[in-house]
């Protein structure tokens, strides 16, 4: 159980803020446990509507747990989550399913349904949640695949796609219900740098073209600075920095500078450890 870091190491608000209606996501005092072990120790942050928030942090810092809680796959032990102004954490499964139609999630592995074609994967949410006729759905599927640069791949099985194409197909599926909020878990993990850059471009395009609010979990610094409007840094279940990308870039705080300039420092402890992990000194292990 790590306490909040000393004030000087922390940029951004430390105390819970009131929930603003203009925020796509507001998280207040969020605590999440697996069994007896608490993973997130009271997390607070806001994602302004139409902006991209990147959650940085080393392996095991609780990034995936935070993302899974935001989309309702884990129940918090306490705290609140507001998505588009509506409480999301403490509601019934049916109410939650209603709100889920307005969000899209792209999983690290893609999580495409292996027994369905790419087209069927993208069509599924539309078939299940709308009364659109098959020909309309077909057109929408083509449109979504077009948006992610996968036109003509409707009839491929997921197993026939490369890693980057799987990611794109998964994004197309996440887009199928025209969500207002999109979540990405490690979008460029396991991809070569050129393919990963393509995914970054796509995320930028989605934000600009569709004014979507986007939350991305990543440990890739370069990618984070390219796509983020705001960043939070998570360490051992506590937010140690919450700032705009420019604030992070121009920060004069020694630790942030060290992190951004990738200065190795052998004797550091605490949050610098994860920063080194971010810079690639210690390869993060996926949980």
């Amino acid at each position: 159980m790590s306490p909040l870091p000393p004030k000087k190491d922390y940029i951004g608000a430390m105390t819970p803020m009131p929930v603003k209606a203009s925020c796509a996501i507001s998280v207040r005092n969020l605590r999440v446990k697996y069994g007896e072990r608490e993973i997130l120790h009271g997390v607070n942050f806001d994602v302004p509507a139409g902006e991209t928030m990147v959650i940085l942090g080393g392996s095991g810092s609780g990034k995936s747990t935070l993302l899974r809680t935001l989309v309702g796959l884990e129940r918090p032990s306490s705290g609140e989550i507001y998505i588009m102004g509506k409480e999301f954490a403490n509601i019934s499964e049916d109410e939650r399913d209603e709100l889920r139609k307005g969000i899209g999630m792209s999983f690290q592995s893609g999580a495409l349904f292996g027994s369905m074609t790419v087209g069927e994967n993208v069509a599924l949410p539309l078939q299940e949640h709308t009364d659109l006729d098959p020909s309309t759905i077909e057109i929408m599927v083509r449109l979504k695949l077009d948006q992610v640069g996968l036109s003509g791949f409707e009839n491929y099985m997921p197993a026939q796609l490369s890693g980057g194409m799987k990611k794109r197909a998964a994004i197309a599926r996440a887009l199928s219900m025209d969500p207002q909020v999109l979540f990405f878990d490690e979008p460029s993990a396991g991809l070569d740098p050129i393919i990963a850059a393509g995914i970054d471009e796509l995320i930028l395009k989605l934000k600009r073209a569709f004014k979507m609010s986007i939350v991305v979990v990543t440990h890739e610094l370069a990618s984070a600075f390219l796509i983020a409007d705001r960043m939070i840094v998570l360490d051992k279940g506590v937010i140690v920095a919450d700032a705009t990308t420019d604030e992070m870039k121009n920060s004069t705080q020694p630790r942030v500078r060290q992190f951004l300039d990738r200065v190795p420092e052998p004797e550091v402890t605490g949050e610098i450890d994860y920063l080194q992990m971010l810079t690639g000194d210690i390869p993060p292990i996926r949980q």
């Binding site: 796959l73 999983f107 592995s109 495409l112 599924l124 949640h129």
Partner: peptide
């Protein structure tokens, strides 16, 4: 493959 999780997030 996280497909069950994906289903849940798609309601």
């Amino acid at each position: 493959n996280e497909e069950i999780d994906a289903m849940e997030t798609m309601a």
